[in-house]
Design a binder for these strands. Structure first.
Length: 1148
DNA sequence: TCAGAGTCAATAGA
DNA sequence: TCTATTGACTCTGA
């Protein structure tokens, strides 16, 4: 600065002196002027005298001229000086400007350096903190670990070693506490139970045969007071294998099953046990998540500690450089963005907990999360989440996932993006991660890169990201093409990307080409993935239509006249190219209709029929074409529900921009260009189409409005009809125009112009409102109407509820389910069965149309509904759909219509086949024909051979059951032996065990339901306030009854315990059946005759199906008997085993 | 790798 | 032609 001023001083002084000179000159000039003036005056005076002689005049003249000359010179000098002054002033101002600039710059530099200085000072202060922390740590170490040891020794040991030691001691403490607790529980049980219990707790009482239960990890001697509990091992039906002690034979079954009290007590004990364990382990848990922790912790509780130990403070990394895990510098720790937080220690448990929470909340699978976010396999993710190692124990590499997880958690958009990915995964089950996993290394590299950039959205990829980039770029190009077209009609310059199709075809042509290229790209990739499928392809055309194309073509081809929109669709010319967008429009029909769920999604439905049919017939035989199209479409189609802003980014723009131009027209293209012959349609496709037609109308206006969030009701059917509807019917429509009856007014009105609905409607309200509470005059909005949304889904799934109106429009089915209150599955299925039976509607029709399930599944669901709380999110879906369906005032009419249409379609098909000379052979009539002709088999129907199903003979089954009773979870060796003995495939045996376990478990759920029902009925009988469930058949009634949802749930969970226990019994678990009930049967049977006659004792409540027509099928009774006998036999077997004192005899 | 959940689809039986 | 059963399969998580 000083130099600056020095520099500045020179020019300034110069200017100053010049100014002075200028002033002086000025003054001199003035003086001269005055002098001149006075001279002039004197001259005038002289002249005035006139008497002066001539010589004087001459002198005067001379002097005047000299004065004038001098004056002129002075004037010039003055002018010169003035100019100098001006020049100098200008240069001065310039100088000032530059100097001020310099000053500013220097000031900036100064502030920067000051800031740097400040930072450095802060760092110094931080370092001072470290020193303090180090000191504190030392103190803590000596306090925590060193009471007995010398403090020097403590301080010299690495923290990890100390923690391990501490952990060990805590473990032993926890063990002793557990033992004490078990004893305590034993006494509690003794309090609650009678003499029989005492018998079983006597040391002489033998435990159950080991073969019946997984071996206990820590076998105890028979004299051990804990003998009976510890021999249990993990209960096969204890979901977590935790709290096994409470499934011990100490809890005597009452009447063949555990009494509710006993179960309650058990649960309480378990809770206590868990708490005690947690408390006892807390110290250690805070520092470490012991490896054994999960095996001893409670089932429900997170096995990982939720908070970090103070010892895991920032000093951690510094202290324990041991274990090869030096504290990572920001750059070392895989460079995740290099945030300051990287310096910090992380609470791995907390991160894992939060991740789990988010995954559960958003229904994101570990597989997907691991793949897209961490670049790890599902197993690794599970491991990390369940047992996160303490930060200090992690190597740099081990810390990486936690960095990523924290990064992931830092922005909700990441989570949303992943959720949408997950949705896609579910949506296209045929192309799950297996495809994507081929690119794991590539993606991992990307993932790493993304980690560095800290942006999860760059990490998240669609499964087929192999070609993702290429496709994206192509789409981007398409977008640009569109822009070009929009903005400058005359400018046909080369596309920015170089112009794939520079030819003067115009943008349409260019886009068509681009998309075709995209198609080929994906096709090629798909072909690479599924070469085997490709080999099986038959005829092929240059382009195979997408599934959605087919779907839409179905619409037009089969039900052209069903709704005005159908006509319009058919008649709309192929205004725009790009068939791939057609599906999008289909999706848009049900803007909210989810596509996530594979089972019922349209693609899936189509996958069952259309695509394969297409391959086998007129369409291209591109194997798996549906998959890539699905994926592609999925990428391209803006799904309001699943395309999240983050995911969107560039893709979103592409979609929105494009596709704006191609929306409906492209659908029309799909319709117009790919009509499927009537005879090629599947029954499912027909039904879907029927529904879709109804939906189309609705959603056609729904879509533009995008959401009737404001409760805008579907307008009239007229409004639903798009303008082009007036177009000329196509040939297809003419030839296949359905009978008037098919387009019944009721149907049309129901599907197209549903009555207005309150904006207050929501999924929950709807769900809650099942049954009588709803005002029949105020039916739901279309979006809530299964009818509308339903199969509608046209696009996605039959029975998919449309998105909810209001701000939550676009709610996916999963979200709807997640929001759903607890439903009474029993009541729900009962009601559905009633409706179906009363109206003579088949399960197949209902299942395929409404639930998107097959008949068998429907039968299963209706006959054996699992309790709501036993169902996964996916498992709840059919029930939610049932709920929606039941709410539809037109549900019956619609199904009836569908039935009629299906019949008509069949007749038409048969007629056309006959006229073609192909007789529909008797074996393939009706749905059978449809099923055989459509799905999954690429051969023509006549060549199609059904997969031969293994049917086990009675002897085989009996043997398997016997084996099951001995070993519900047989070892591979046992399975092999069984398989060879029975001459079955090992897979068959494995599957049989799986199925049997699962089904026995479910049978027991039914008992639970029935028990709950009985209890509820009893309660209702006692009090005046009846729940109304049975009376009006609504779930709501039950839920709003005296037993509120919470209580209901609790009760259910209690029963759940019972169920598990019982399941364990049937599963050969160590749970011992009380001799009071089954003792009469006695352990008389020898091992060679384990199974008495099936009817030998039905003391166990039969797992009766609770259909509304229980005796409808006599076979039910037989089965029930069989099952009951089975369970009884197991009980007998257990009793028999229990009767053996020598454990060596337990072997069967 | 295994087990559970959910489902499909062949088959049996009414 | 319906429903029920059941072997097989996929997906998911531990």
């Amino acid at each position: 600065m000083r130099s600056l001023w020095r520099d500045l001083s020179c020019p300034c002084s110069l200017v100053f002196s010049l100014s002075q000179r200028a002033e002086a000159a000025q003054r001199e000039a003035d003086a001269l002027r005055e002098q001149l003036t006075s001279s002039n005056q004197s001259l005038q005076l002289t002249t005035h005298i006139q008497t002066t002689p001539d010589t004087e005049q001459a002198v005067e003249a001379v002097s005047r001229s000299s004065l004038e000359a001098e004056l002129g010179a002075k004037d010039r000098e003055t002018v010169q000086l003035v100019e100098d002054i001006q020049r100098l002033q200008a240069s001065l101002s310039k100088l000032r400007e530059s100097s001020s600039t310099q000053i500013t710059q220097l000031q900036l530099q100064l502030s920067t350096k000051t800031a740097t200085l400040k930072q450095l000072e802060e760092k110094l202060q931080e370092h001072a903190d470290y020193e303090e922390v180090k000191k504190e740590l030392s103190i803590l170490k000596s306090m925590e670990f060193g009471p007995s040891d010398s403090s020097e020794q403590v301080l010299s040991k690495p923290l990890e070693v100390l923690l391990l030691e501490k952990n060990r001691s805590l473990q032993s403490e926890s063990s002793s506490l557990r033992i004490a607790n078990t004893e305590l529980s034993g006494s509690a049980r003794r309090k609650g139970k009678e003499a029989s219990v005492e018998e079983t707790t006597t040391p002489s009482t033998p435990s159950l045969p080991p073969l019946l239960l997984p071996p206990s990890p820590q076998p105890r001697t028979p004299t051990d007071p804990l003998n009976t509990t510890t021999t249990n091992g993990t209960h096969p039906f204890t979901p977590t294998g935790i709290g096994q002690d409470f499934y011990s034979p100490h809890f005597p079954p009452v009447g063949g099953k555990m009494s509710l009290n006993a179960l309650l007590q058990r649960q309480l004990m378990q809770t206590f046990y868990s708490k005690a364990l947690q408390e006892s382990n807390q110290g250690a848990a805070l520092l470490f998540a012991p490896v054994h922790y999960t095996s001893t912790s409670t089932s429900g509780s997170s096995p990982v500690p939720l908070s970090a130990s103070p010892l895991q403070s920032p000093a951690g990394p510094e202290v324990n450089g041991s274990g090869g895990a030096p504290s990572p510098s920001p750059s070392q720790s895989e460079g995740t963005g290099g945030s300051v937080s990287d310096w910090e220690d992380m609470d791995t448990s907390e991160i894992a907990r939060q991740i789990k929470e988010q995954l559960i909340k958003h229904n994101i699978g570990q597989r997907v999360f691991g793949h897209y976010v961490l670049g790890l396999s599902q197993g690794s993710v599970s491991e990390i989440l369940a047992r996160p190692k303490p930060w200090s124990k992690l190597t740099i590499r081990g810390k990486e996932p936690f960095h990523k997880m924290r990064q992931f958690l830092s922005d909700e958009q990441n989570i949303l993006a992943l959720r949408s990915i997950q949705g896609r995964q579910r949506e296209s089950p045929g192309q799950p991660l297996s495809h994507a996993l081929q690119d794991v290394p590539k993606q991992r590299a990307r993932s790493d890169q993304a980690s560095r950039t800290g942006n999860i959205t760059t990490r998240i990829r669609t499964p087929d990201c192999g070609s993702d980039d290429a496709i994206r770029s192509i789409l981007e190009q398409a977008k640009r093409e569109l822009h070009v077209q929009k903005s400058a009609d005359f400018s046909h310059g080369p596309s920015p990307g170089g112009g794939l199709r520079g030819g003067g075809g115009g943008s349409d042509e260019a886009i068509r080409s681009i998309l075709e290229q995209a198609r080929r790209e994906m096709e090629a990739q798909q072909a690479a993935v599924e070469p085997s499928l490709k080999a099986s392809s038959s005829s092929s055309t240059s382009s195979s239509p997408s599934q959605r194309d087919l779907l839409v073509s179905h619409l037009a081809a089969s039900f052209p006249a069903y709704t005005p929109l159908a006509l319009s669709l058919k008649n709309t010319p192929t205004a725009l190219p790009v068939s791939p967008s057609s599906p999008s429009t289909v999706l848009d029909f049900s803007s909210g209709v989810k596509r996530e769920d594979r089972g019922v999604s349209v693609p899936d439905s189509l996958a069952d029929g259309v695509p394969r049919l297409g391959r086998s017939s007129e369409e291209s035989a591109r194997p798996g074409g549906g998959h890539w199209r699905e994926q592609w479409w999925s990428n391209m189609n803006p799904d309001p529900r699943r395309v999240t802003p983050t995911l969107g980014g560039e893709e979103n723009h592409t979609q929105e921009d494009s596709k704006e131009a191609l929306s409906l027209g492209s659908m029309c293209d799909g319709v117009g260009s790919r009509q499927k012959p009537w005879s090629k349609m599947t029954s499912r496709g027909l039904r879907m189409q029927l529904w879709l037609n109804g939906d189309l109308s609705q959603n056609t206006h729904i879509k533009p409005a995008h959401n009737q969030a404001e409760g805008t009701p579907c307008q009239t059917s007229a409004s639903c009809s798009p303008a082009p509807a007036e177009g000329t019917p196509s040939q297809t429509s003419a030839s296949y125009s359905p009978a008037p009856a098919e387009g019944t007014p009721s149907q049309t009105s129901a599907s197209c112009s549903p009555p207005p609905e309150s904006p207050l409607s929501s999924a929950e309200e709807s769900l809650n409102g099942l049954g009588g509470d709803r005002d029949p005059l105020a039916p739901q909005a279309p979006s809530l109407e299964p009818p509308s949304g339903e199969p509608s889904g046209g696009e996605s799934q039959p029975g998919t509820p449309l998105p909810l109106p209001g701000p939550i429009t676009g709610l996916s089915i999963q979200e709807t389910i997640a929001m759903s209150p607890e439903l009474d599955t029993y009541v729900l299925t009962k009601k559905v069965k009633e409706v179906l039976t009363d109206n003579n509607l088949g399960q197949r029709l209902f299942g395929e149309s409404i639930l998107g399930l097959t008949q068998g599944s429907v039968s299963d669901l209706l006959a054996r509904p699992k309790p709501w709380h036993k169902l996964s999110l996916k498992g709840r879906e059919p029930f939610v759909r049932m709920q929606f369906w039941l709410q539809d005032p037109h549900k019956v009419e619609k199904l009836m219509d569908m039935k009629r249409l299906e019949k008509k379609a069949y007749l038409k098909r048969r007629h056309s086949s006959l006229s073609d000379g192909h007789s529909v052979d008797g074996g393939l009539a009706g749905p059978d024909f449809l099923q055989s002709a459509s799905p999954q088999h690429q051969q023509p129907p006549q060549l199609y051979q059904k997969k031969v199903r293994v049917v086990l003979g009675p002897e085989e089954k009996e043997a398997l059951k016997r084996a099951y009773q001995e070993k519900p979870y047989p070892s591979p060796k046992t399975i092999e032996e069984l398989a060879s003995q029975l001459n079955l495939k090992t897979s068959t045996v494995i599957n049989w065990f799986h199925n049997y376990r699962s089904r026995i478990r479910r049978e027991l759920f039914i008992e639970e339901i029935q028990a709950a029902g009985s209890a509820a009925a009893a309660k209702a009988g006692e009090g005046d306030s009846c729940d109304g469930t049975e009376s009006d058949g609504t779930v709501e009634g039950r839920h709003r009854g005296p037993t509120g949802p919470e209580e209901h749930k609790e009760a259910s969970e209690d029963q759940d315990m019972e169920v598990r226990v019982e399941a364990g019994v049937s599963g050969g678990s160590p749970v011992q059946r009380n001799s009071t009930t089954s003792g009469s049967a006695g352990p008389g049977s020898s091992s060679s005759s384990l199974f008495g006659p099936p009817e030998a004792g039905l003391s166990l409540s039969a797992p009766a199906s609770h259909t509304s027509t229980p005796a409808r099928n006599p076979r039910d009774n037989t089965l029930r008997k069989k099952k009951a006998a089975n369970l009884n036999n197991i009980i007998h077997r257990l009793e028999k085993a229990a009767g053996k004192e020598d454990p060596s005899e337990w072997e069967f």
